[in-house]
Design a protein around this nucleic acid. Structure first.
Length: 805
RNA sequence: GCCGGGGUGGCGUAAUGGUAGCCGCAGCGGUCUUAAAAACCGUAGGACGAAAGUCCGUAUGGGUUCGAAUCCCAUCCCCGGUACCA
């Protein structure tokens, strides 16, 4: 039966047709009206794409297909983020080499992605593990280095004493243990490479004000950048350099009764008095152990120790004691604070435990002993009576600045990006260490620095990358002097690979440049980027930083890579995040096999708003499958060509309403309501007498195209139209067809529905009022009384206000 | 703790100041079938009622309004982010 909807045969047929005709591979050099539709490329795991990936790609692909039918040439590339610790750990676990696993995983992912029916341009795919790709990742690093945006510094890394390996932060569990073996993680100081993202904090923050991004994502970035306005204040110390603090509340300085240094502040030991020094050293060492173990001091009893030395209050001249305590962090602000116990809860707790004076300087109610809000200054000498924090903040800082003891200061939580990884599965950092010339860049002509295939890629246990096992790799000569030198053996962070992949796609087949100028100018920045909010801070922030850096270095004309970003929601199973450890990961293959990619896409996208995600329930896939069955049954009832093609008025109206709704909701990614509108239209067609008007079915094929790309092609073809439905313009609404002959107007009394009437649309308020009052039922209910007021909502409601008895 | 999002039938959701529950899933009744599945037709928030209809109902309590799921205040719960950030 030709009316049968045989998804398996039909989907295979159209997949082959698309591949053969290359309709998803625009000519990037000449395509007019370009639209770059980007989605976050996946990490090709051994398990294959999961439902969450499918959801993201189905939704992003629907967007790209919709844009194509709006007249754009759409470039929709796909690639693989194949380097990184996950691949490496998996390889270690199954005792295979990661390079051997990647090929199979990528092939499997590609098979799944093709099966989904995405309009991917496979002629421009990338894999970050391909030397043709990471050559340019290394090039990018060299440009940053040249531009002063890469530098070396010593920094602590997390280290597992059992696995003898450096751990990424995300491999350390909440209780400070190694995710693989459960051992308490320790810290180790290593010399590493950093990228100076801190040079762009202001711009990263400021541009968020105008970027067209999901608000949820912008908020996460703002929070992560963590800008705080305040002041640096120097507290003089007898016979020593003054101690500098950062505070956001300089207005409360008259309430500062003691000072606290982080245990690992560089001056904690040297500021301790000679008789306290031994005790302080013990405390500092103990605090370091606790910090490494991730043990936080949550007890009510604050920990800390007096240093046995005083500083002088810069405005009152009072002697105030110095302490060290773990609640002060070394890597934020200056690592030291002025403590104002009356107006900071942590300082208050500390002051109470150590019996230190508490001087209130701002009026107002306190919570947990401290009032951190606004008020009026008291006990503040010449500043008494001023509003706090403003305007007192400014005036105090001005007074301090005059004495050379303070200045306005802005502090950020965002730190520079450490990219060194003492692991194997990443691009080698292109640097050479010369005993004479220090760290020297690898000449660009010698890129890529190939990652050698070493059999034993287990972590070394020395704090060096496994590449330090391979003398053939690291023994080299200095590019400056030609003398013997050693290559950098660390590899770079996986996030560096993904921070620029969108630039590479259009130029993926080019070996002479990282990204071609003309192609980049035509296609970038990205028109729409769709991905999960789990990458809101790291990936999306790093990508923005790299674009800004490349812009300032003269490589790009733009400095924001993604004009529009939309975060999609998360797919859960039984209300919980899918994860391997929970064992609730849904593999999509069998569903696609059974119901077809089209029904599966429809199911995922109809579940709820795309930005919200939803809970996966396999019983729900019946709905979209039935819907497609209905559509194909209707297709078999379409009037034969050449017969008198008259579209009944009611169906023409339903069709236009459907076009209106789908056209309104689809670009907003409200796929659920767009699909509901199409289902409603199909119900109308089913209820109408056959034959099915041809325009109805043609419209349906066009509207379905972004969501069910295979079925839409099939319907389009069976209607006798030329290939391909995906190259057709989107249908337009005939405004004249949006009218109705009758509307239902509800009549209510005091807001409660009491009657309704069918009236022609567009009646005047007076006419509606007259007709409502004329209703027999309303007259009975009014029982002779007159409404004191009548509210009329044209075409909708008449509300009569009657005094309650 | 703090920041953000959310709480609507058995379930996913729709409606963002004007008929609450569109669309779908599961259910129930029926048709077809030896039977089941599929398919199709019908039904469907709760209570009372033969019906007409009435009352109740959008986490909970209050408020604003002619009218509130929608706006405001308070409380509870769920999800996400973050966590001694001075």
């Amino acid at each position: 039966m030709p009316s049968e909807y045989d998804h398996a045969a039909l989907e295979m047929k159209w997949r082959q047709r698309w591949q053969g005709s290359h309709i998803y591979e625009p000519d990037l050099l000449t395509a007019p009206n370009p639209y770059y539709n980007l989605m976050m490329f996946p990490y090709p795991s051994a398990e294959g794409l999961h439902v969450g990936n499918m959801y993201a790609f189905a939704g992003a692909d629907a967007h790209g297909r919709f844009q194509r039918m709006q007249g754009h040439q759409v470039f929709e590339p796909m690639g693989f983020d194949a380097f990184g610790i996950h691949s490496e750990n998996f390889a270690l676990k199954v005792n295979r080499h990661p390079a051997d696993l990647i090929a199979g995983n990528v092939a499997n992912f590609r098979r799944q992605l093709e099966r989904l029916g995405g309009q991917f341009d496979w002629s421009k795919t990338v894999a970050t593990t391909d030397p043709r790709y990471y050559r340019w990742t290394q090039w990018l690093f060299l440009q940053l280095w040249k531009g002063g945006l890469a530098y070396r510094a010593r920094r602590n890394v997390k280290w597992c004493p059992t696995d003898l390996t450096v751990l990424a932060d995300e491999q350390v569990m909440g209780d400070g243990t190694c995710e693989r073996c459960g051992t308490l993680v320790v810290e180790r100081e290593l010399e590493q490479w950093f990228l100076r993202i801190s040079a762009y904090t202001d711009k990263l923050l400021a541009n968020l004000d105008w970027l067209d991004w999901s608000e949820s994502t912008k908020l996460l970035q703002r929070h992560w950048i963590g800008r705080s306005e305040g002041a640096h204040i120097d507290f003089p110390i007898e016979g020593q350099e003054p101690l500098r603090v950062f505070t956001t509340r300089p207005d409360t300085i008259f309430g500062a009764t003691f000072m606290v240094l982080a245990p690992n502040h560089p001056r904690t030991l040297s500021l301790a008095s000679p008789e306290r020094r031994a005790a302080v050293a013990d405390y500092v060492a103990e605090a370091a152990r606790r910090r490494i173990a991730g043990v936080r001091n949550d007890s009510d009893q604050p920990q800390g120790l007096a240093l046995g030395r005083n500083a002088r209050h810069p405005l009152t001249g009072a002697e105030i004691p110095l302490f060290t305590a773990e609640y002060v962090l070394s890597d934020y602000g200056t690592g030291a604070i002025m403590a104002v116990p009356a107006h900071d809860q942590r300082d208050h707790a500390f002051a109470t435990a150590f019996e230190l004076p508490i001087i209130p300087v701002v009026t107002g109610e306190s919570r947990d002993g401290a009032h951190s809000g606004s008020g009026t200054l008291i006990n503040s000498g010449p500043f008494d009576g001023l509003g706090a924090p403003d305007p007192a903040r400014e005036m105090v800082v001005a007074a301090l600045t005059e004495q050379g003891l303070g200045q306005r200061q802005i502090t950020y939580k965002l730190r520079d990006w450490g990219i060194s990884r003492q692991r194997y599965w990443g691009p080698p950092i292109p640097a050479i260490h010369c005993p004479v010339h220090g760290a020297v860049p690898v000449p660009e002509s010698e890129l890529p620095v190939l990652l050698p295939h070493i059999d034993d890629f287990r972590p070394l246990g020395t704090g060096e990358s496994p590449l330090a096992r391979d003398p053939d790799f690291y023994n080299t000569t200095c590019p400056v002097c030609g003398g013997p030198a050693k290559r950098e053996t660390d590899v770079s962070d996986n996030f560096l690979d993904s921070a620029w992949y969108y630039l590479r796609y259009p130029s993926a087949d080019r070996d002479d440049v990282a990204f071609d100028r003309a192609l980049t100018r035509r296609w970038l920045p990205v028109d729409t980027y769709i991905g999960g909010n789990e990458h809101a801070v790291l990936h999306l922030l790093y990508s923005r930083f790299i674009a800004m850096a490349l812009h300032d270095l003269g490589w790009l004309d733009f400095d924001e890579p993604f004009k529009r970003f939309r975060a999609h929601g998360m797919i859960t199973k039984d209300g919980a995040k899918m994860s391997k450890s929970r064992g609730n990961v849904v593999v999509p293959d069998e569903y696609i096999e059974r119901f077809g990619a089209d029904a599966f896409r429809l199911y995922l996208l109809a579940m709820g708003p795309f930005s919200e995600g939803g809970d996966f329930r396999d019983t729900g896939i019946n709905g979209p499958q039935r819907f497609l069955n209905h559509v194909f049954r209707l297709l078999a009832q379409v009037e034969a060509p050449g017969t008198a093609e008259v579209e009944p008025l009611e169906l023409a109206r339903a069709r236009n309403r459907c076009i209106r709704d789908v056209t309104r909701d689809t670009p907003e990614l409200k796929y659920n309501t767009a699909i509901a509108a199409m289902m409603t239209f199909v119900k109308h067609l089913q209820a109408a007498a056959p034959p099915v008007p041809r325009p109805a079915m043609e419209t349906l094929a066009l509207l379905l195209a972004p969501f069910c790309p295979h079925a839409a092609e099939e319907i389009w073809e069976r209607l006798g139209n030329p290939y391909s439905v995906h190259q057709q313009p989107w249908p337009t609404v005939d405004q004249n067809m949006l009218t109705r002959d009758q509307v239902v107007v509800v009549i209510s009394i005091n807001g409660r529905k009491r009657d309704q009437m069918d009236v022609p649309p567009g009646l005047s308020e007076d006419e509606l009022r007259r007709r409502a009052l004329g209703s027999k039922r309303i007259q009975e209910l009014l029982d002779g009384s007159t409404p004191t007021k009548v509210f009329v909502v044209p075409d909708r409601q008449v509300n009569l206000v009657v005094p309650q008895r």
